[in-house]
Write a protein that binds this DNA or RNA. Sequence first.
DNA 1: CGGAATATTGATCAAGATCAAAGCGAGTGG
DNA 2: CCACTCGCTTTGATCTTGATCAATATTCCG
Lengths: 222, 222
Amino acid sequence: MLTQAMPSTIRRDIARPRVSTLALAGAIEQMGAPMSYARNSEIYGENEAADYLYKVISGTVRTYKILNDGRRQVGAFYSAGDMFGVEVGDTHTFSAEAITEVKVLVIKRSSVIAAAQRDNAVARQLWSLTGRELQRVQNHILLLIKTAQERVAGFLLEMASRAGGNEVELPMSRQDIADYLGLTIETVSRTLTQLENSAAIAVPTARRIVLRNRAALAQLSI
Amino acid sequence: MLTQAMPSTIRRDIARPRVSTLALAGAIEQMGAPMSYARNSEIYGENEAADYLYKVISGTVRTYKILNDGRRQVGAFYSAGDMFGVEVGDTHTFSAEAITEVKVLVIKRSSVIAAAQRDNAVARQLWSLTGRELQRVQNHILLLIKTAQERVAGFLLEMASRAGGNEVELPMSRQDIADYLGLTIETVSRTLTQLENSAAIAVPTARRIVLRNRAALAQLSI
DNA sequence: CGGAATATTGATCAAGATCAAAGCGAGTGG
DNA sequence: CCACTCGCTTTGATCTTGATCAATATTCCG
């Protein structure tokens, strides 16, 4: 559910998109209006109409599902540059929440779809976004069938590759990580300690991880 | 890798697709040429060029990846009516094998992409196929975080819903099921026995399962 | 019929969950 | 500024689930 009024510019901007503009790479995000969400606020809920898609400007977002028995499965973490909320059907299959203070571009789905009708490049981009999501979910499956060490190592490498260095500032809690990896917080915590003891990583503060031995981590995350 | 010569009709059929035909629902499969694969033969390999997509006419196909340590993860089972091998990038992300004798329609990817350029309906269909695949992989994730009983019950319900009755003839081996569910064959076998003992299912022969108490199974597969 | 592949069952082991307690750190109010 | 509290994280002890190792049963074919 949108918790803020949509900026008035959004309707004007996307009601008459110019094809020449849309044909450019990154056309979709040009239809967006900026919006902010507070820490832990909901961006949209599972099964809600997927009227908007989103591109993260800053901060981190988690998507998740609550299972019948109360467990939570985190589907993905999205940070600056990532798009989320792109659905082929017309409802969201996950809920989305801001992990930190988050700024996003909010893009009206109907406009993107309309643009895709007219403009092949947009259609192709939309398809490509779904394809990227598919790839990511498939990788997530490969994580979930591994041991705890492999999952945590894989997670750290994934986060580090996004951050682009050997130091990772984790915006999400141990509970978020556990729910993403299909583990408990205790197991995540213990596994981090093991990795630290084996000199693969350092954990100066709970939310900051330094990759000391990437090769060892990669080895683990077979 | 294609293990059979492509029927000569395929080039003629898809080189000049008529737009009027393609605009119809199911346009994509009209570009296909029939082909058969023997039990356990490879249809394509991981990382091969995704030159073709496929629609199952009869039989069952499994897709899978072999992990570094030799384990195999089965990604999906496809049976009559299902399309597989649809990639957004230009290589296959999984390998595909015939579980039984399989008949498929083989459809040239470049022709579909070309048709999608011209015809919006085809582009939309292509997107929709990828979306369906995404949905399926997301459900797979939800299966993988559950207990053995929940996974097996969920699997049986999934198979039954496709077969459309209470009796399921499983074309795949216990090893296939285990590799799909992230379990061992022993656990799959034991779990089936437990479900049989609790009167949720009957197992007249190893490959035939009768759902006796769907509610109990649904309960389990939370 | 015989042999190989597939499936079931049993015994034991280990990884991760669960239950429980203590430690740490950031923000708050006296 | 310090002490206190609340939420998050770590650590410890024990239990449970599913893996592993091993043997037997069944099915499918040539």
